[in-house]
Design a protein around this nucleic acid. Structure first.
Length: 1027
RNA sequence: GGGCGAAUAGCUCAGUUGGUUAGAGCGCCACUCUUACAAAGUGGAUGUCGGGGGUUCGAGUCCCUUUUCGCCCA
């Protein structure tokens, strides 16, 4: 904008304006939220993005939705606090840094050591935190940056220590041996949520174990089948079903039931299974019964290779309908076998080192990796004649989500949180309605997951995270442990509540220290206690986020005022991992729920319906979208698509850096380092470019044309504002009597009041797309296409001009405020210019407009302006304009040529529409010659029937007979179709006798009108033919 | 295997308690540089509402079933 000449460019220059505006907001503390008891608090804590990498479009959506709520509540006069921060994302971040360490320096974390590695991760964190916060700022997020937290900073650390100490003291934390998912690459246990099954090609090896001293008539071997033969080194039993006959009968019964209800297509497969079962009964069953008896008789086997004696046992885990009917039991390396071992009191033999190699229990195979051990074991068994056969088979192998390497089930010491009570409290919070989840269907998953009340394994064998604050010592004898326990219990720190002590059977002492305290640590170390190496699961610290960020465990003024927070806005994949745990931790620590509402927003998918990810190459950086379309378009575009039921599908394009053409991303080209432009043919590079030859091509931003709608809307808004401002010279605020306003003014004010009300209720209920559509329709169709068009002639009339200026200024003002939460930059830019033309512009207030729209009041709903009958009346005008325009277009009459028409209507309609003559002139280029219940028709005319009016456009000068005939014929066939439908319905006896009277009456009336129209149309066609 | 969700115009999506001829934006076609906006304006064409069955006078909407896709859990 040129301040001297009042010239306004016809595009919003977001590239320079956005940062200027954001800096101004920052400079003036517009985002700051401080305790003010005269006002209501409104609080949101950000779902802290992981510092693993830059933000993607999913984050952009998530944060836009939060910013909208924050900005709206801020305008509504609440103290709106948006608490920002990032998450250390334990395993994910460490995995990335370790991977880079390997790639760049070819080193492992052990080469570096704990301290050095953690230092490196902090560097990584600083780099990405800066990038992430920068991205949020470019999006316009109005967080209170003074309060930015990190889940690993000292304040969060203190909250973690306090929580851990509290749970430990309540005996809700314990250590136990459990079979865990072991990631041999990262050398840590990972939770079930961090592993994914992948189907890979494997083998099914059938192995024989010899019996020790079998009796006459008994088999010499038992055959088992396994996909992981190396685990035989840790076998401690072989199981057979206790009653194989009954088990086979049961399996058969199930199959027969299935066959009964199966579709024809599925029947053959089930039948063949039944046939196989019958064969088994014949051939295998006697053998299995014999084996079950042998097991009961205590028969033993000699485990080959390690030459260990192991029992044959009976357990229902052995399935007679599968394989050989017998199964090897490896308790320390298989979850099902682990359960069997618990049931049958079998020893558990660990054969693996943390790095995935065979340990000393593996006999001759010690030191080999699991895959190498597998090959050697199979070869050795083959040499011994114990390999019966090998089958190819597809098998599901769990893979670590982080390192992408296969998971080894592994028996390890793990720290757990007992979930029984905690989970129940979080379930109650939702079932009692204290925490409301939108959309409600997501409550199911939350409740189901918590309902399992599985204890939470919280330890991770990592270096990046909150180290578990427990010092332990294991003794030979229980008595020694108890004596140390007594000694510690007698310490003054114990009575001061700084330490807590417990015994893990049989002889381990655990001491938990409440707060960071070097002296105390030394004291415990002098007693021979050693700190636990493990760190806590990253979700442990994020679970405290709503209260730890507000200062807990201190009872701060912020905590008292802003907690519980108002709403949590997040994505569905972390409802259990994060949302549920925040609820239970909030209840445990603060005694109150952490938030009253939770809104689960859709996921952003690409054009193929796949989730976006960097590894697929279909990810979109919000900054690319901002650079091309602007931050407001990014936000509006996301909101426009954020509906309640559907995920957001978003086809992705490369933007050619040479010619700016959008090149569709396909499953092929998104994986390639360089792609050729569809249009100019020149090459550009993608995220995969690594070689110099690829990098030589300029990199293409990845965007989506879905944002064009929003960009166009922002432009429309900008130009409508430009029009208003260009026509505000000489503007003086004036008092307005609503009742005596012309129809068009009453109408736009009624529309404005309605859309204000809609925005408020839709946003309150998180129906973002509906809100966006409401304001879009208002701004584009109602304000721009109709009101502004009608304002044009009025602005030329000195008498009408002041009033129109007032209404325009008022509407623009309110519209900008309604849009500000969604499109903050463009509305602020316009707002600050508007001040120069109209500093007082609100119809209801003589106050000077606020300097900042971010600080302006949210528009009040003026119920008294909502006039449904005015909106109905106005619709007649819109219909009339449309009818005339259609004829113009059909007859191809140039816009500059004036035409005439007459209308058959009742006097009331004439009274309503005759005063609008000037608008018909300006908007349809047409003049009415008559308004009458029986007008004299032009000799050649085109007739259009609209609600309560017949419009006859004079075509004496213009007639294109063929065009008019074809228009009428089309109309006629349409009418005939409808008449047939209605006549059919009304002649249907059951419709007439059963449908409600008002529906029937409506149908009759509609039919009469249609028949009248048909007759008129037929006559018109006849007349046209005679010309 | 269990649970949740989706399937509507070429594309992305609306469609409240069942009730005239199922809507929007983009794209497409035609015509317009009309001084806010060509990122615009005006008009137009485009649908077996995934398939099958049922309830009902009447079904995109309710019920059953089936197919395909996505997500979560096992």
């Amino acid at each position: 904008m040129n301040a001297e000449t009042n010239e306004i460019p016809n595009r919003f220059d977001f590239a320079t304006s956005a940062t200027e505006i954001y800096d101004q907001w920052l400079e003036h503390g517009c985002f700051n939220a401080d305790v003010d008891k005269t006002k209501k608090p409104f609080t949101i804590v950000i779902p802290p993005p992981n510092v693993t990498g830059a933000l993607h479009l999913g984050h952009a959506l998530n944060n836009t939705l939060q910013d909208i709520q924050i900005r709206m509540h801020r305008m509504q006069g609440d103290v709106a606090l948006w608490m920002p921060g990032t998450d250390h994302a334990g395993i994910a971040t460490q995995a990335i840094v370790e991977k880079r360490l390997k790639e760049l320096d070819n080193k492992t974390r052990h080469d570096l050591g704990r301290e050095k590695l953690v230092e490196r991760i902090w560097q990584w964190k600083e780099q990405y935190e800066t990038r992430i916060l920068g991205q949020l700022q470019r999006m316009g997020c109005s967080c209170d940056w003074r309060r930015t937290r990190f889940t690993l900073d000292s304040q969060c650390a203190r909250a973690v220590r306090s929580t851990f100490f509290d749970l430990f003291s309540k005996q809700l934390i314990y250590r136990g041996k459990r079979l865990v998912n072991w990631d041999t690459f990262l050398q840590t246990a990972v939770s079930d949520d961090e592993v994914n099954p992948e189907t890979i090609k494997g083998h099914f090896w059938h192995l024989r174990y010899p019996f020790i001293a079998p009796k006459a008539g008994e088999p010499k071997f038992v055959t088992i089948a396994t996909t992981r033969p190396e685990t035989m080194l840790g076998d401690t039993a072989v199981a057979v079903h206790p009653d194989p006959a009954a088990a086979l009968d049961k399996a058969e019964k199930l199959l027969r039931e299935k066959l009964q209800v199966a579709s024809v297509k599925d029947q053959p497969a089930i039948q063949s299974q039944l046939d196989e079962l019958a064969t088994r009964k014949q051939e295998l069953l006697p053998q299995l019964i014999l084996l079950a008896n042998m097991a009961r008789d205590g028969r033993k086997l000699r485990l080959p290779l390690v030459e260990r004696e192991i029992p044959l046992i009976t357990d229902t885990w052995a399935k007679p309908e599968l394989g050989s009917g017998c199964v090897k039991i490896t308790p320390a390396h298989d979850p099902n076998d682990y359960d069997v071992a618990l049931r049958c009191s079998l020893p558990m033999l660990n054969i693996m080192n943390p790095d995935g190699t065979i340990n000393e229990n593996g006999g001759p195979y010690v030191g080999l990796s699991m895959p190498k051990a597998r090959m050697k074991v199979v070869a050795a068994m083959d040499d011994l004649g114990f390999l019966e056969k090998t089958e190819d088979r597809e098998i599901d192998v769990k893979h670590s989500d982080r390192s992408k390497t296969p998971i080894e089930p592994y028996l390890a010491d793990q720290w757990f949180v007992r979930m029984e009570q905690l989970a129940q409290s979080a379930m109650d919070a939702v079932t009692h309605g204290d925490v409301k989840i939108f959309p409600a269907r997501y409550a199911n998953g939350y409740l189901d997951w918590l309902g399992e009340k599985r204890d939470w394994p919280v330890g991770r064998q990592l270096w990046w995270g909150h180290q578990i604050p427990i010092w332990s010592k294991t003794f030979e004898a229980a008595a020694e442990a108890h004596s140390l326990q007594s000694k510690i219990e007698a310490m003054p720190e114990r009575s001061a509540g700084l330490i807590s002590v417990s015994i893990e059977e049989p002889a381990t002492v655990h001491v938990c220290i409440r707060e960071e305290d070097g002296g105390l640590e030394v004291k415990l170390q002098s007693l021979g206690l050693v700190r636990q190496e493990d760190v806590l699961d990253t979700w442990f610290s994020s679970a405290l986020w709503p209260h730890s960020t507000l200062g807990w465990p201190e009872q701060t003024a912020e905590l008292e005022y802003f907690y519980p927070t108002s709403t949590l806005i997040t994505s569905r994949d972390i409802i259990t991992l994060w949302v549920a745990r925040m609820v239970l931790m909030g209840l445990n620590n603060v005694g109150k729920i952490p938030f009253r509402e939770v809104f689960i927003h859709p996921k952003i998918l690409d054009g193929y319906g796949e989730t976006m990810s960097k590894s697929k190459g279909n990810g979109v950086d919000p900054l690319d979208v901002i650079n091309k379309f602007g931050p407001d378009a990014l936000r509006f575009g996301l909101v426009w698509l954020c509906t309640e039921t559907q995920d957001v599908r978003m086809p992705v394009q490369f933007e050619c850096p040479h010619c700016e053409t959008l090149v569709n991303q396909t499953k092929e080209n998104r994986q390639q380092p360089t792609v050729a432009c569809d249009k100019c043919g020149k090459k550009f590079s993608t995220q995969w470019a690594e070689k110099d030859e690829d990098k030589a091509n300029p990199k293409a931003p990845v965007v989506s044309e879905r944002f064009e709608v929003a960009r166009n809307f922002v432009n429309k808004l900008w130009n409508a504002s430009r029009f208003v401002m260009m026509n505000l010279d000489g503007f003086e605020p004036m008092k307005v009597d609503f009742q005596s306003l012309p129809l068009e003014d009453q109408w736009i004010l009624s529309r404005l009041a309605t859309v204000t009300k809609t925005m408020q209720t839709e946003l309150k209920h998180y129906r973002y797309a509906e809100a966006a559509r409401a304001i879009y329709d208002f701004a584009w169709d109602h304000f721009c296409s109709l009101y502004v068009e009608m304002a044009k002639p009025r602005l030329q009339d000195p008498e009408a001009r002041p009033l129109v200026q007032q209404i325009l200024a008022h509407c623009l003002d309110a519209m900008l405020r309604l849009l500000h939460p969604i499109t903050p930059f463009v509305t602020e830019a316009i707002w600050q210019q508007l001040v120069r033309f109209a500093i007082k512009r609100d119809l209801h207030s003589s106050a000077v407009a606020n300097t900042w729209i971010i600080r302006a009041d949210w528009p009040a709903v003026h119920e008294e302006h909502i006039r449904p009958e005015v909106e109905r009346q106005f619709a007649h005008f819109v219909d009339l304009v449309g009818a005339i325009r259609e004829i113009r277009s059909r007859q191809n009459i140039a816009p500059k040529i004036a035409i005439q028409f007459c209308v058959r209507c009742e006097p009331a309609m004439e009274k309503l529409l005759a005063p609008m003559a000037s608008f018909l002139q300006s908007m349809a280029g047409a003049t009415a010659t008559q308004w009458s219940s029986s007008p004299t028709l032009p000799s050649i005319n085109a007739h259009v029937a609209i609600d309560q009016m017949d419009v006859y456009v004079d075509l004496t000068q213009f007639i294109d007979v063929d065009a008019e005939i074809s228009r009428n014929e089309k109309l006629l066939s349409n009418l005939v179709k409808q008449i047939q439908g209605k006549e059919g319905r009304l002649s249907n006896e059951s419709f007439v006798s059963r449908a409600p009277a008002d529906i029937i009456a409506k149908e009759r009336q509609a039919l009469d009108e249609l028949v009248a129209q048909r007759n008129a149309t037929e006559q018109a066609i006849e007349k046209l033919r005679s010309l």
